[in-house]
């Protein structure tokens, strides 16, 4: 009974925070409420026995998206005037959304009790052959590896576009909110945490995405400390870093195909090692992409390619 009380409190607070994040007056307040909403959601997921997701939501959903929104807030010097939508259209969309929500709630009520699905039964049978003990990692990197591979492609697409769109302006220096001392402590700490999360993903909550997010946080710290981040990297190295995760994944995936197996099949004896290899590559690429997405406005001067020395500097002309 007491759990039910906690559940109800949690859910009502979630709803209140959602409303606040959607309808608070200023954009800044909304972002803050959104971060609080995400953190509370992480608690709810921990309560629902989803520690992987609690970790990911806190690090990526609330943490990184929150940081992203906050940084975008600085950019938005003059907000766009709102579009004028016809009254009828607004009424119609509201009515349709309300109807859909109502139908959804009704459908959700009829769902329970759930019966044990086919997929989960097959998962329990196949877990011994997955190469890792932690079921979420097994699903992500083995049973449904194709999803994860395409997800890396989605991240790559976002990172490339962020680089393409970065306005041509120098990195602006602003007052560093972090002292060098703190950075020197934080950086190794974050790196070690990332490594630990990666390693532990095989048998406990954690894995490439959480580790990548923590590593990305290290770049954010560097950025806060006025480090120019990626601008000092050679552009070829940046391209390689971006490609690494997907490249390893595709390469390992093809390994067995050559020997007559399926795409993305791992030999049982080395599955654990291959999964760790893929995850390590994925972690680096994820960290790179997430921090690029966060750094956003700060361009790499030679992206995507060094202009030929004798020709016109087309990059400048284009931007």
């Amino acid at each position: 009974m007491s759990w039910m009380l906690i559940d109800l409190t949690l859910c009502i607070s979630l709803l209140i925070l959602a409303v606040a994040a959607l309808y608070a007056r200023g954009l800044q307040q909304r972002v803050v409420f959104f971060i609080a909403f995400g953190l509370l959601c992480a608690i709810a997921w921990a309560r629902l026995n989803a520690p992987d997701l609690a970790l990911a939501e806190a690090a990526i959903g609330a943490g990184l998206t929150g940081a992203l929104l906050l940084s975008a807030l600085n950019d938005e010097t003059d907000p766009q005037p709102p579009l004028t939508q016809p009254r009828l259209g607004r009424l119609l969309t509201t009515a349709i959304t309300a109807l859909l929500t109502l139908a959804l709630c009704a459908a959700v009520v009829t769902l329970f009790p759930l019966h044990e699905g086919i997929a989960i039964q097959q998962l329990q049978q196949q877990m011994p052959h997955a190469g890792v003990v932690h079921p979420v990692t097994a699903v992500l990197l083995n049973f449904r590896a194709w999803d994860t591979l395409l997800e890396l492609a989605v991240l790559l697409c976002a990172a490339l576009t962020v680089l393409n769109l970065a306005p041509a302006r120098p990195v602006t220096a602003h007052d560093s909110p972090l002292t060098g001392m703190l950075t020197r402590i934080l950086l190794p700490l974050l790196t070690v945490t990332a490594g630990y999360l990666l390693w532990t993903g095989a048998h406990a909550p954690g894995g490439a995405f959480q580790a990548g997010a923590v590593l990305a946080a290290a770049t954010v710290v560097l950025r806060l400390n006025n480090n120019p981040g990626f601008t000092h990297l050679r552009v070829g190295a940046l391209r390689a870093l971006l490609a690494l995760g997907l490249l390893l994944f595709l390469g390992v995936g093809l390994l067995q195909t050559v020997l007559g197996g399926a795409f993305l099949q791992y030999p049982p004896s080395t599955a654990g090692f291959l999964i760790l290899l893929i995850e390590a590559g994925a972690m680096l690429s994820i960290a790179c992409m997430l921090s690029l997405v966060y750094l956003g406005g700060h361009l790499h001067p030679h992206w995507p390619c060094h202009a030929p020395s004798n020709g016109v500097d087309t990059w400048k002309r284009h931007s």
Partner: peptide, 13 residues
């Protein structure tokens, strides 16, 4: 049909 990862059924893609 091609079962990715060799799993097939309802578990794999």
């Amino acid at each position: 049909l091609h079962h990715l990862g060799g799993w097939g059924g309802d578990l794999g893609i």
